[in-house]
Nucleic acid binder design. Structure first.
Lengths: 202, 202
DNA sequence: AGTTAATCTAATCAAATGATTAATTTATTT
DNA sequence: AAATAAATTAATCATTTGATTAGATTAACT
C-alpha cells in the first residue's frame, strides 16, 4: 500500500502536520498516540510538543483544516445566486465525489469527532451555512411541500454515505477499490438524476 | 438529561453490560475508560475484570450484540421471497427508522469501530448478507441497467445518514430533537416513494 | 571566529489506565 | 452451624502515554 510520504524536503513542522493529518484522520483523536505521529513523521517525540505544545492543540489545527476542507467545499456552491438548482446539485455531488475519492476517511473522521465534541462545530462556525442560502430557497420553490433539509440531507447522504460504508463493503468482499471508484464515478451522474426525480415526488 | 439507569434489580453482570453498551456506543472503544463503565454501572472496577476478563473481551460481547442489532434487522427482509420489492423497501426504511430513533448512536458506532478493525466484520460473518439475496434479484429485474448495490447503498444512506449527521444538525441549531423525530417519521413515507422514482430513472 | 538563537535528542516525569491481588463480605451447600 | 464457594472491595502493579527537562547539535547573525 502507498505509505504516506514524510516529504524529505518538508520542514519538520510540516512533516509533523502531515503525519498528524494522516493518523488523526485514520484513527481518530482518542486512538491516536502522539508517538504514532512522531514515528510516522520520523521525528523525535519531543519535537511534537516543541512545535505544537500539546496533542490537543495539534489536533485542533488538523481538525480545523479538515472541517474547512469538508464544509468549505459546498459553501460557494450553496450560495451561488447565478446557478440553477440542478446545476448546484451536479456540482455538489461532483465536487464531493472527487474530493472524497482523495480523502475517503474524511467523512467518518469528521462525524466521529464532532459527536465526541460538538463544540468543535460552533468553534469553527460552520453553522449558518445553509440558513437562508440560495440552494434552500431554490429547493423551497421547486418543492414547497417538503422541508428543504430533507433534500439537503438526502443529496449529501447519497453522495457521502458510500464513503462511510466503504470499509464494510470492502471487508465484506462486495467491492474492491477499483469497483468502488467506478461506482462513485457513476454516482456523479446518477445522484443528480435521482435528485431531480425525487423533487418531483409529492 | 435522562441518566441511564443501572437497573437496581439487574445482576451485576448485566449492570456492567448495560453500562458498557452505553459508554462504548457513545464514545467508542478507544475513548472509553473501564473506570467510566464501572462508575456508570455503580460497581467496583475489579468486578469488570472479574466478570469479563478484559476491556477487549467486554467490548467484543457488546460489539457482537450491536452488530446483530444493526445488520440482523434487514436479514429477514432482504431474503423474504414472498414480499414485493416496494414493500421490502418500505419495511427496511420503517424498521431502521424505528430502531435508530431508539439507538441514534448506533450507526456511527458501528461504522467507526469497523473502520478501526474491519476483522470484526468477518468475525461476526455479516457478509454474504446481500449476495444472491431476494432483494438484489428484484432490484436487478426492476432496473437491470444499474448495479443493485447502487440502490442498496442509496436506500440505506437515505435512511441511516440522517442519524450520522444528527450531532451536526443539532449542534448547528438547524434542528431540535422533536424536529429530528418528525423528520425521520416523514422519511418513512418519503424514502420508499423516492426509491420508486429512482428505480425508474434510466 | 565567536556569540546567540533555533532545532533536536535522550532521558525522565507524572498521571492515566487496564489489570491483579489479597482480604472481606455475602451466599450456598452440607 | 460449619464449611465452601461466590461476589465484592480497597489497595496496588505495570504499562502506556502526554509532556517536560537538560543538554547537545545545528544554523544564523555580528
Amino acid at each position: 500500500m502507498a505509505k504516506s510520504k514524510p516529504s524529505k524536503t518538508a520542514s519538520t513542522e510540516e512533516k509533523i502536520k502531515e503525519a498528524a493529518r494522516h493518523v488523526f484522520t485514520k484513527k481518530g483523536f482518542a486512538a491516536t498516540r502522539t508517538r504514532d505521529i512522531a514515528e510516522e513523521a520520523g521525528i523525535n517525540l519531543a519535537l511534537l510538543n516543541y512545535y505544537f505544545r500539546s496533542k490537543e492543540k495539534l489536533f485542533g489545527i488538523i481538525m480545523e483544516e479538515r472541517m474547512m476542507q469538508f464544509f468549505g467545499l459546498i459553501t460557494p456552491v450553496v450560495n451561488d445566486a447565478s446557478s440553477s438548482l440542478d446545476s448546484k446539485i451536479e456540482m455538489i455531488v461532483s465536487y464531493y465525489v472527487d474530493m472524497l475519492l482523495e480523502n475517503p476517511d474524511l467523512p467518518l473522521f469528521i462525524m466521529s469527532e464532532l459527536r465526541h465534541d460538538s463544540d468543535l462545530f460552533n468553534k469553527f462556525q460552520v453553522n449558518r451555512l445553509l440558513q437562508n442560502s440560495h440552494l434552500v430557497m431554490q429547493l423551497k420553490e421547486r418543492q414547497p411541500a417538503i422541508h428543504p433539509l430533507q433534500f439537503v440531507v438526502s443529496i449529501l447522504g447519497l453522495t457521502i454515505f458510500p464513503f462511510i460504508t466503504k470499509p464494510i463493503l470492502q471487508a465484506s468482499g462486495a467491492l474492491n477499490q477499483h469497483m468502488f471508484v467506478a461506482m462513485m464515478e457513476e454516482r456523479k451522474k446518477l445522484v443528480p438524476k435521482w435528485a431531480k426525480a425525487m423533487l418531483k415526488v409529492k
